[in-house]
Structures are given as C-alpha cells and as structure tokens.
C-alpha cells in the first residue's frame, strides 16, 4: 500500500506529458471512469465545504433561516477559551498518540521482519484495527471502569490504587490516546513492514558479514532506508489522529470539565447539541486553514526526504 502511494506522483507526471491529443481521444471515456469519484467528491466534500463556508458568516440554528452576521462568529471563536483549550487538548492527544503509535509500530514491524515470517502473527497484529472504533471505545470503557472494570480489579489485586482513567481530568486524554494507539499500532506496523520489504536483503547480509548486531543493523540500515515510508506514515497518522472524535463521543463526551473536549467533538457539540451551526462552521474553517498549513509543511518535509537507496 505504501508503495502504491509513493508511486502516485510518477503516474500523474506521465499523464500530463501526453498533452491535448490524449484529451481528444480518451477524454470522454476517462470522464465516465472519473464520474463516480467526482460526483462523490462534489456531493460529500465540495458542496458541504462551500455551504459550511457560507454558514460560518451566519447565525444559523438549523431550524430557522440563516441570518448573516459577517465576521461575528470568527471574532467569537478567537475569544472562546474552550476553543483554544480544545486545540490544546487535541494537540496533546496528537503528539502522544502519534509518538507512541509510531515507536511501537516500528518495534512491531522490525519484529515481524526480522524474527517471524508467520502470516498468522501478521494477521493478528491487525485484529484491533478491524474492530469498529465505537466497539473499541465501549470495550475499553468497561475494562477501565473504576467499579466493575477488569483493569482496576487487577491493579487492586497487585496492590496499586484505583485509577479514574477516562474520567480523571489528568488521565482522560492520555487514556483516550492510548486506546487509539492500541487500535492503530498493528496497521501502522504493517505499513512500515511493507516499507521494509523495499530494503534489499543483501545489505543485511553484508552487515552480518561485517559483524553488525541486530541493533546496529536497525539503526544504520533499516531506519535510514525506511525514512520515506516513515515520513508518509507520520503524515497519514498525524492527519488521522487529528480527527479524533468517536472515542471521545462514546466515552467521556469531552469531560471531566474540558479535559477531553477535542476540537472535532467541540464542533460537533456546538452544531448538533447546541445548534449553533454558524459558530461551529466558523471553527471548522479555522481548522481547515490550520490543517492545510500543517499538511503543506508536511508535504514539504516529505518531498525533501528522497530515498537513500537511489
């Protein structure tokens, strides 16, 4: 999968080179093939985005007609401390989630690559990722419950004190991040594992002849040659991680106080429980700007990282 993603820019370049004769000859047919994707894009991305942009300049509660308020919503967003807190909470989540997930996945990928060839184990690593998010969230909410949860029961048995986990203001967002690390680590490991297949085996053979141990080979062969794939994985997980919503919605609903009120959940609350659609849209526009900037930065970093194999 990683390989296909990386190859995509190449394909685009070829298409552009063929010029106008290509368009005349195959244009219509190409359009037919593109139509399903384009219709989906227009219906589910383009139209809602434009409508959202329009709502962001209005006071709209879903039930009566929108009233134009100009930049009013944006001014309010800037002075809304819950909004800034939500960005901070989301930031903590993203950093913790991406860091633990990537490090653990790298470890798992090396184990899969260097220690075992078992398809069974590779499949098992993916299992949590195959379970729907909501199910995972419910599962962990029960496991971590203070009164009837298994985790606290075990902790008490071995002499540790009970922990609030999801409902403790200090642990809430880190617990949610850990749950999602657990869910995604196998998938991320598989991506990195796929990347490792691109590294020629003879390098390891050479390394072994020169007397390098597994640790040294990891640091000096695997890690540098994996860099492009690693960068891609980071981009993908960072954006995915930013979209944290379901685990929060199922377990903490943003609480206690605002400890796990991540930005997407706050937008959802404003829009669908308090029906301030205009305000929620303005926050979404802020988020678009922020995410576009983040993505551009990452793309730049990604382009800079050409493979050391070449």
């Amino acid at each position: 999968m990683a390989a296909t993603l990386l190859a995509r820019p190449l394909g685009r370049r070829t298409a552009r080179r063929s010029g106008s004769s290509w368009q005349r000859g195959h244009g219509r047919i190409a359009l037919v093939f593109l139509a399903p994707a384009l219709i989906g894009f227009a219906a589910f991305y383009l139209v809602p985005t434009v409508r959202g942009l329009w709502f962001s300049f209005t006071d709209y509660n879903l039930l009566s007609d929108p009233k134009v308020v100009g930049l009013g919503n944006y001014g309010e967003v800037l002075s809304d401390r819950v909004f800034w807190n939500a960005l901070k909470v989301t930031g903590v989540y993203v950093v913790f989630n991406v860091a633990t997930q990537t490090v653990l996945a790298l470890g798992l990928a090396v184990l899969m690559e260097r220690l075992t060839r078992s398809v069974m184990i590779r499949a098992m690593v993916l299992l949590p990722w195959l379970v729907p998010n909501v199910t995972i969230a419910l599962l962990w909410m029960w496991l971590l419950d203070v009164n009837v949860g298994f985790v606290n029961h075990v902790m008490e048995q071995i002499g540790l004190s009970k922990q609030g986990f999801l409902f403790s203001p200090d642990q809430s967002i880190l617990t949610i991040a850990s749950i999602n690390t657990w869910r995604h680590v196998g998938y991320t490991a598989l991506l990195l594992f796929a990347g490792m297949q691109l590294i020629p085996k003879h390098l390891y053979e050479a390394g072994r002849i020169d007397g390098a141990g597994e640790g040294r080979m990891f640091r000096q062969i695997t890690l540098p040659l994996l860099r492009p794939v690693l960068a891609l994985v980071l981009v993908v997980s960072l954006i995915g991680s930013f979209q944290i919503f379901d685990t929060v919605a199922v377990t903490t609903e943003g609480g206690p106080v605002n400890a796990s009120r991540v930005i997407y959940y706050y937008i959802y609350e404003k829009a669908f429980t308090q029906f301030e659609f205009g305000y929620a849209s303005a926050m979404s526009v802020f988020l678009i700007v922020f995410l576009v900037a983040l993505t551009l930065l990452q793309m730049r970093l990604l382009r800079a990282s050409t493979s050391d194999l070449a």
Binding site: D145, N147, V148, G164, F167, S168
Partner: peptide
C-alpha cells in the same frame, strides 16, 4: 461518596 472521577459513566445501578 466515591470521587467524581471514579463514579464512572455506567451509572449508579452497577455500583
């Protein structure tokens, strides 16, 4: 009374 962070979301009935 149990600490607020330990009251859990499962409601009072299981407790």
């Amino acid at each position: 009374m149990p600490p607020y962070d330990q009251a859990g979301k499962l409601g009072v009935t299981p407790m």
